[in-house]
Design a protein around this nucleic acid. Structure first.
Lengths: 342, 342
DNA sequence: CTGAAAGCGCTTACAG
DNA sequence: CTGAAAGCGCTTACAG
């Protein structure tokens, strides 16, 4: 029992597949095909259980109605929520998503882009790993639209939807400052990516503006593929400082760092916020029910995802706008809970 | 600058595309094409930046190397981790994933199956929502292999990879019993799905075996699309019981319930485990750093995902085995933390 | 109003 | 060893 094709329907009725194609695509009226025949075609299509072969359609029209999505890791709720939003918005317009987790590894993302290209996706949404500038530049020189999310490369002209990380970190640090914290540390990851860099810059600027001396030993930069031992080591170095150098607050640049960090702080018997105040980027469930619910920088994930799809689809539908880039920076909001005291 | 095709390479060299196809598919040796020509083809392919059009290939061969994945919600870490594992294992064998979140809504999953079918996926991995028996049965009558994960329908013959939920709940409840808890509640969701039903059955059986009287008012069944208010209401009803009816433990059948539940319990000023002991299914990050780290039933997500892909691919590659079903039930492990006291 | 024909980019018998 | 040809299932000028 092979799948039924347009041709099967055409033969069944003794008409041409042109005609069948027209009515099945709702162009019956447009080509003034008689209602009678339209009905027959529709009936037979249903009777034979016809479903269009999108792949054949894609080959013919050059459009697959598919978007390629590359993020760091779909198991990470940050990207999971983003992925969900993208899926949902894309589905509204009849697009499907092929997703890939790059693990922040440029070798992987390169292969994934190649795979997606071979799959003839109509566009890409990418959260580019560090050292992937060349891949993105190659994409920018091609004709398939794409939009970057979460990070971007300032020197590459293209669409991106990001968040004002500098501002977010600045405000978070100010919040700590306003509550009387002075020795504020920042635990972050490799600075090759602008989003991470901006966070630490915002933190630094807030300290400068408050005339608090910068102390580079308070900024802990972990490799991208860190584990909880790396975080524990950083925390231990930080809390080992005593006297006037005693650390009284930590800004975590990602929630993965924060979750591991809080686990470690608890293990060390330190109290949040009494001994150490905590602020973190991102807002996982864990932060809502943890020992001392965490004050966070909350990113508008829904909006990022939704906007990314909209920007992409507008370019897919208007190829003439391929060089009109949308560079969108969204604001974050700041959710105050208990981890900074009051 | 159109993409280069096989034909372009063929013309460029004045050979047939048959030949080009052979060497590009590594069949040069097999058809004894001279090394010289092979090299030329490869060189030109690289020079013209050739990439195969998988969609054309798919149309011709009837294989798209694509798997359709339907889960409840990719933003839920439970499914996110599962999705990640499936993606990774599939990629090892050259397969890509189109993913869909059904929201436990059978209308959606039905549409998604149709969409996936039109996309000519080679197989499906599905976590079927309740009331989707008919869709799954239709699939089972078709010729495209699929495997169910997380839940299944006992009356439908097909592949599935699930977990021994009865056993898991039985052990969890026994753990509570062994620590002296007697009035153990179970908060769960709609019982239409076997996995949820089995959890409550396991809970009941453990109580029976320990000669603890069953009390149906201790089993709170929420609708599938519950929010934290629903959970809060259930908890309040439970803790309102006093005297000999006082509740001293809760088994949460999902982590979404548990996270909301713990938030509510904290709000009410109750202490875990002193006032109430907690055990939950699933092991999100939140449980590791929360007020009283939660004792959990941990599902082998990696193994579920990996096995699902393997079972599916073995059927895709051996269509003759379409009716040889693999029904796999994996064991869970039990991670003891602090939420049950000692 | 309807049909015959070309063609999207591939693979694969078939022939020599 | 290599090529001409058919065909996967569709869409879309073109012709009448």
């Amino acid at each position: 029992m092979k799948k039924t094709s347009l041709n099967d329907i055409a033969k069944h009725l003794g008409v041409s597949k042109t005609l069948v194609s027209f009515v099945l695509n709702g162009k019956g009226k447009e080509f003034r095909i008689s209602d009678d025949i339209c009905k027959k075609v529709l009936d037979v299509a249903k009777e034979l259980n016809y479903t269009p072969n999108r792949i054949a359609q894609g080959l013919r029209t050059g459009k697959t109605n598919t978007i390629g999505l590359i993020i760091a890791d779909i198991a990470n709720p940050f990207f999971g929520i983003l992925g969900r939003e993208i899926e949902q918005e894309a589905a509204r317009f009849g697009y499907r998503i092929i997703f890939c987790s790059s693990d922040e590894n440029p070798e992987k993302s390169k292969q994934q882009i190649a795979m997606l290209q071979q799959s003839q996706v109509d566009g890409y949404i990418i959260s580019p790993p560090m050292k992937s500038e060349e891949q993105i530049r190659t994409l920018a020189n091609g004709t398939i639209p794409f939009v970057l999310i979460d990070r971007y490369f300032p020197e590459i002209e293209c669409n991106y939807i990001v968040v004002d990380n500098f501002d977010a970190a600045y405000r978070a640090t100010n919040h700590l400052l306003a509550l009387g914290r002075k020795r504020i540390a920042n635990i972050t990851v490799n600075m090759d990516l602008v989003n991470m860099k901006d966070r630490t810059e915002g933190y630094r600027q807030a300290l400068l503006d408050a005339s608090v001396a910068l102390d580079d030993s308070l900024v802990k930069i972990l490799p991208f593929s860190h584990d909880n031992k790396d975080v524990a080591r950083a925390i231990k170095e930080l809390v080992a400082k005593t006297g006037s150098k005693k650390v009284d607050a930590i800004l975590f640049s990602t929630s993965k760092l924060g979750i591991n960090g809080i686990e470690c702080i608890s293990t060390l018997g330190l109290k949040i916020p009494d001994d150490i105040a905590i602020v973190s980027f991102d807002n996982p469930d864990a932060y809502k029910i943890c020992i001392s619910p965490v004050t966070v920088v909350n990113q508008p994930l829904k909006e990022i995802g939704k906007t990314a799809v909209q920007v992409l689809l507008s370019q897919i539908k208007h190829p003439e706008n391929i060089a009109k880039f949308q560079k969108i920076t969204l604001k974050t909001d700041f959710i105050i809970r208990k981890s900074c005291g009051s």
